[in-house]
């Protein structure tokens, strides 16, 4: 399938004083995908989002949205973008509806009242949309934030922590909704999140950023499946003897005792051998459990344990 990127980041660099916040980041994002952006605190996630939204100036490189430079042709580039930057901060002294009317007036093509009502329904805010934003919970503000981002039917949706403050049902709703609009309406959704499990469930591709550098871009399915080693938890009796035995047999592996059980890393095909070794040495094996590889572990592996959860 021939796909044109909706966002092209080319050698994006942002320096503040002597400090390089974003270092030579190059990345394409396509229509129809949910792209997850992961990184520890201070890695440059929010800075990247601000650069994409034209809120801060690039030091070097360029960002094209639908072919228009966010620097040189801001109004054309941003017309295709809807977003929430950090928290969805609204005018608290106005109703949710007035907030939407406010943003709707800022587009060159008229956004009808029907369209406003439509997005209100979409985010499930019909009942309270005419109340002041001050009375809303964080979850409701998040929904209102989503509504303002969708008003003009953008082709790129940038969302900073979109499920923050939502209850589990709300999270699932938003997740399904985002996957839906990405895949069915061919919109690119760019999501940053610190909830790794969220990204795993929501996104098609994930980019990992650390210290301003993009260290990996992979599809989520690849990332989770292509792992050589898995973490194994072995419950035995006696534990100490097991520990010494495994230490002896696998001197190059890290073996620890936690919660009265053995933790170690092993290849999947090694597991029958480990079991055999323990049994022949008269150890009672109660359980051998290999953790399914999660994105979180992969992420920890890549960023060296510096994780923002």
């Amino acid at each position: 399938m021939e796909r044109n990127p909706i966002v092209q980041m080319k050698n994006v660099t942002k320096k503040i004083g002597p400090k390089t916040i974003i270092d030579d980041l190059t990345l394409d994002i396509y229509r129809g995908e949910v792209f997850g952006f992961l990184g520890p605190n201070g890695a440059g996630k929010t800075t990247t989002i601000r650069l994409m939204a034209g809120l801060i100036e690039l030091t070097d490189g360029d960002i094209l949205i639908n072919g228009h430079s966010i620097q040189k042709n801001f109004e054309k580039a941003i017309a295709h973008v809807g977003g929430i930057i950090e928290n969805p901060e609204m005018y608290k002294f106005m109703s949710g509806y007035d907030n939407l009317v406010h943003y709707a007036r800022m587009f060159p093509e008229k956004i009808s009242q029907e369209r406003i009502d439509e997005v209100v329904r979409l985010v499930g805010m019909e009942k309270r949309i005419h109340e002041k934003v001050k009375s809303y919970s964080l979850g409701m503000r998040q929904r209102l934030g989503l509504a303002q981002a969708l008003l003009h039917s953008p082709s790129l949706l940038i969302l900073d922590e979109p499920t923050n403050g939502l209850d589990p049902a709300g999270i699932r709703e938003v997740r399904n909704y985002l996957r839906n609009i990405a895949h069915e309406q061919n919109i690119a959704v760019f999501v940053s999140s610190h909830l790794l499990s969220e990204i795993q469930l929501m996104c098609d591709r994930v980019g990992i950023i650390q210290n301003g550098k993009l260290i990996s871009v992979e599809s989520v399915s690849n990332l989770v499946e292509n792992r050589e080693y898995v973490a194994v938890r072995i419950e035995t009796e006696p534990v100490q003897k097991t520990y010494e035995l495994l230490k002896q047999s696998y001197p190059d592996k890290k073996v620890t005792i936690t919660d009265q059980a053995i933790q170690m890393e092993a290849k999947r095909e090694d597991l029958p051998d480990i079991n055999k070794l323990l049994v022949t040495n008269g150890i009672a094996v109660y359980e051998i459990m290999s953790n399914k590889g999660t994105l979180e572990e992969k992420f920890l592996e890549m960023t060296g344990g510096n994780i923002d959860v």
Partner: peptide, 14 residues
């Protein structure tokens, strides 16, 4: 101070 500047400036208006 309200933080609304971010959502205000990401519109197709200079």
């Amino acid at each position: 101070s309200w933080g609304t500047i971010k959502l205000l400036l990401i519109r197709p208006v200079s």
